[in-house]
Design a protein around this nucleic acid. Structure first.
Lengths: 214, 214
DNA sequence: ACCTGAACACCGTTCAAGT
DNA sequence: ACCTGAACACCGTTCAAGT
């Protein structure tokens, strides 16, 4: 009996399964192939290299994350929800984080761009301002997830109330008076959702900019 | 003749050499050991695992980057320069970028925190606002570098004038009218320094916040 | 204390060969 | 066209042994 030829998306789905279970760092060409009952080398007919598979998997991940908010929201809330959506999707699958700086944006990312720019243009922003705002939100979402990851927060559970984050623990080595004052404030800040640090400030600045030109 | 015992910092220096030459992704325990003329296993007396070496190397990298601006600048410029300094240091050694979300902050990062918070407190911000502003700047700097890396910009050269970034190339696959309008604006934006996208907006918001409470 | 040698259990990828 | 098997050139890390 001849095996049906495996499609590109079959490999991508298998990769996403393995990533969900073991994390991006444990993904290997061999594991994907084994899950599909195929030789590892079969994949090189569909993907030029592991990076290619990873980029395709990330784009599929973005599609599933579904970060585009409902259209009837006012722009401030729309932007806030879009940024939070990106942040939350990545928080749920934090093993992507170390690769965030090396993954190329694919087709699904482009549809998010389109929706964002359109929403802001309808709100009265100029095209270049809308594009600028989009990339500012992306930066902040990615930065927030990176910061969260550096805190050593595990994927699911929130940190135990009594326990200092690893970041604050490091900070308190060789502590002086200033650090002892700063540490609890830092710890309180970092216990909140990291997306709430810079995103509200950004939206404030955008609102001021819009008001100034109307 | 007995070899002098190798210190932790000798390993870190060797690691930074290899990273500067080949990139973080090509660093291996075996290469560091070979450069020092030692068995790979010798390192496990000084570092519990490769992650431990990498964290130490990153902290040394931060120390060398020297991102703390001169003290006599007004706070807006000080914050702007600090953020830009982080951004530029990472742009110069972009192979760190994929790891930005998984590297813990060490002692050198803590001295940057201290300087930043102190500067903003002297400018009139409350402690919690100063800490919040610091992490907002970190997020934006990290996000900007991640975005720059995703553009497929090589470490040194600026992209050829005539050539679209890989991000815009991907964006233009299956292009409709809207995308054809957005693409050149996006490309112009992404040719600028990525740190200039969100950092000025953040500083604007901070200034407004400070004015409101005084 | 610090280092070594050999081994284990993995990797990504090439290449020639199969059907 | 698509897949296989064997091989190459690597990895991080463990463990028992050396000095």
């Amino acid at each position: 009996m001849t095996k049906p030829a495996l499609s590109r998306s079959a490999y991508v789905d298998a990769a996403l399964d393995i990533i969900a279970e073991l994390g991006v760092d444990k993904l290997s060409m061999r594991k994907v192939a084994t899950q599909l009952g195929v030789s590892p080398m079969a994949m090189y007919k569909h993907f030029s290299a592991k990076d290619d598979l990873l980029a395709a998997a990330f784009d599929a991940f973005i599609a599933r994350a579904d970060v585009i908010p409902s259209d009837d929201l006012p722009w401030e809330q729309w932007v806030e929800q879009a940024g939070r959506g990106m942040y939350l999707a990545l928080c749920a699958e934090m093993s992507w984080v170390p690769l965030l700086g090396s993954l190329p944006m694919g087709k699904q990312a482009a549809t998010v761009t389109d929706a964002f720019v359109k929403k802001l243009q309808l709100a009265g922003f100029k095209l270049d301002q809308a594009v600028e705002a989009y990339y500012a939100v992306i930066q902040i979402a990615v930065g927030a997830v990176c910061l969260r990851a550096s805190l050593g927060i595990a994927d699911i559970r929130t940190p135990d109330a009594g326990e200092l984050s690893s970041l604050t623990q490091n900070y308190l080595e060789n502590a002086d008076a200033a650090r002892l004052t700063i540490a609890p404030v830092q710890e309180a800040l970092l216990k909140r959702d990291q997306i709430d640090i810079a995103l509200p400030l950004l939206i404030e600045a955008l609102r001021a900019r819009l008001k100034r030109q109307s």
